[in-house]
Nucleic acid binder design. Structure first.
Lengths: 130, 130
DNA sequence: ATCTATAGCCTACACGTGTAGTCGTTGTCA
DNA sequence: TGACAACGACTACACGTGTAGGCTATAGAT
């Protein structure tokens, strides 16, 4: 069961792996093509980032013809959770209020988000009811 | 009114400026002494970090005797907000659900946090009521 | 069978950061 | 008034990261 630790992923690498999460396994040139417009990267840069992701164990590949089909080895949820945890611990020192203020300042929340908020409240009331 | 942009603050620098936020203006050696135990830094390291914070405009100082009394030039709220915004934009792509799940997974929330959650919900209901 | 575009691998380089050391100056104690 | 401790300025250096170029092998087109 030993969960491999989710590696740290830099911000440029994150843009690349996001593409893989969103569109599934693909070759380097397709990642390049699929990146949001205006990123301004050379394809070489994207390839470097893919290699680094592989080196970190965040991405794997399968050889197809003379090229690789890259695919994520960690899920978006794993990475998101890791980053969120680190952020809350190290930047916020575990405090949640700044986040709650931030959310308060957000424009409309979706129905799902509102439902989630209600769920949290309910859970808290239940947990402390005694 | 030109708000100076809040500078990016690295994680080691953050530990240092937190000390200033928590305990007010102090000399380098006092910052060093006030850091959480077990940080393992040399005092030289702390001084370097203070200098870098000054260079970034995050901290200012006033000369007293032969040393400086350092004090924050940006507030904890400014920095927290800046980091939170960046995090939500770049890591979460603006999605709030991961945060809400994280909060759900937290142990007990404080009364203040629960009140804030209720406030958010109320505000959302009001905003969309029409 | 040959050519060429493209692939991945390795290398490069500047900048921020973590982590500290050296050096010249100066406040302070004896 | 002289010695010394402590200060800040400057320097150092390795590592991660952003950003890409060169090199060699080869898949695929003709």
């Amino acid at each position: 069961m030993s969960d491999k630790p989710v590696p740290a992923i830099s911000s440029a690498e994150l843009e690349v792996i996001k593409t893989l999460w969103d569109r599934g396994p693909m070759a380097a040139r397709d990642v390049f093509a699929a990146l949001p417009e205006g990123h301004g990267w050379a394809i070489k840069t994207v390839k470097t980032l893919l290699s680094r992701l592989v080196a970190k164990g965040a991405v794997t590949y399968e050889q197809v013809g003379n090229s690789y089909l890259y695919q994520p080895a960690v899920t978006r949820e794993q990475v998101t959770r890791r980053e969120l945890k680190g952020f809350v611990e190290h930047v916020l020192d575990g405090r949640l209020m700044p986040i709650l203020h931030f959310i308060e300042g957000s424009a409309d929340l979706s129905d799902a988000e509102i439902a989630q908020l209600e769920k949290i409240l309910e859970k808290q009331r239940k947990g402390s009811a005694e």
